[in-house]
Design a protein around this nucleic acid. Sequence first.
DNA 1: GCAAAAATGGACCTGCAAGTCCAGAAACCG
DNA 2: CGGTTTCTGGACTTGCAGGTCCATTTTTGC
Lengths: 203, 203
Amino acid sequence: MTRALTRKGEATRARIVAGAAAEIRERGVDEVRLEDVMAHTGTSKGQLFHYFPDGKEGLLLAVAQHEADQVLIDQEPMLSNLTSWPAWLAWRDRLIERYLAQGVKCPLNGLLGQTGRRAPGAQAIVTGLIWRWQKAITEGIRHMQSTGDIDPDLDADRAAAALLAGIQGGVLLLLSTGKIDHLEAVLDLTIDSLRAGARTGGS
Amino acid sequence: MTRALTRKGEATRARIVAGAAAEIRERGVDEVRLEDVMAHTGTSKGQLFHYFPDGKEGLLLAVAQHEADQVLIDQEPMLSNLTSWPAWLAWRDRLIERYLAQGVKCPLNGLLGQTGRRAPGAQAIVTGLIWRWQKAITEGIRHMQSTGDIDPDLDADRAAAALLAGIQGGVLLLLSTGKIDHLEAVLDLTIDSLRAGARTGGS
DNA sequence: GCAAAAATGGACCTGCAAGTCCAGAAACCG
DNA sequence: CGGTTTCTGGACTTGCAGGTCCATTTTTGC
C-alpha cells in the first residue's frame, strides 16, 4: 500500500537517496544539510519533503538501508561461497581492498553510532545487517566443518560472532587511525586460528 | 602557562566536565545541548564560556580526554599486569563486567565516530588511547612469551592489534545489539588461540 | 581591608537549518 | 483529450542552540 509513484518519481527518489548517501560518506552525517543534498542531486526542498514526508529522519533511514545493503553486496560473491581456504582468502582480500579504498569515509559509521540509539528504525536496520552478515559467515564455517577443514566441535556461531566483531573493530580502527593494520591483523590471525583448529583436532 | 585558576574555579571546571560526560554517556553527543549541561551541573552559560572559551568544541575535547583516560583506568590494575593466564582471565572478566554495566551508553562512541574526523584534536585523543591500550596488551603478550606461555615466534604487536580490534568490535556490536555475546566470543576465542599457540609450538 | 583578578548569572543576539505552503508544470488514465 | 494526480520550484516561517556581553559577587594576594 505504498503510495503511487510514477516512473519519473521513482527515479528522482533513487537519485536523492544515492546522492545523500554519497554526500554523507564524504562528509559525515551531521555535516550534511538538506541544502547540500538538494545541491548535489539537483532537487528542490519541495521534492525532498514530497518523497520523504518525515523529513531528514526518513531520508536518513532510507540512506541507512541503502548503505547496509551495499555493504553485503560489496562482499559478493565471496561471502556466500566460503567453501574452501582460497575462497576465504579471496573474501579477506576483498574486505581489505574495499575498506582500503573507502578509507576514512564510512557509510555506517554515523548510523551505527549516533543514529543507532535515536531512531527506532535505524536500530532494526543495523541489527538486520549484522544478523545477515554473521549468518553468512556461520554458513561458511559450517561448510568448512562438513568438509573437515575446520574442527567440527567448534561452535560455528560463536566463531562467526568473534570474526565479525574483529572485522567491525578493524574497520573502526581504520576510521580512527587511517591505517589498515588492525583489520589485516584480525582477519589473518582469526582465519589462521580457524585453520589451526582443524590440524590440531583432526590429526 | 595555563591561565590562573582558583581552587573554586578548578572544582567548577571539573564539575562541568564530569557532568557533561555523564550527560553525553546517557543521551549521546548530539542530543546534549549546552543548556542540558548547565542544568545538570548547576552552572550558567557565563561559566561554561569562561572555562571553555572555544565553546562546545573545547568542552567536548575536554570530555573526550576525560573519558579516554577513564577507559584505561577502569581496566587497572589488570591491564598492566597480564603476567599469567589467571591474570588474563581476570582482565577479560573486568572488561565484560565493565561493558555489561555500561550497556548502550558509550562514552567514546560519538568521539570515535563523529568527532573523529571533525576536530583535529579529537583524532589525537583517540589515537593516543588506542596506542596506549595496544601497548599495554603487547607488553602482556611479550611477558607471556618470556615465560614460555606464548609462542615466542608470534608477532606480539600484531596479535595485540588483532585483540584490540576484536574488543572494539565487540563493544560496537554491544552498542548496536545490546548483547554482550560478540565481546565474550572474541575475547575467549582470541585468548584461547594465544594459549593454543604455546602448546602447538612448544611440544 | 582593599584593589585586582577571577567567578557567576542571566538577558540578549544571531544565524542557520528543518520544515511549511502553495502555485505552476508534467505525467497519468479513462 | 480533459480531468486528476503527481511532480517540481522556491519563497517564507519558525524554533532553537551556540555564542556574546556585562553587571554583580566572590576570591586572592599583599
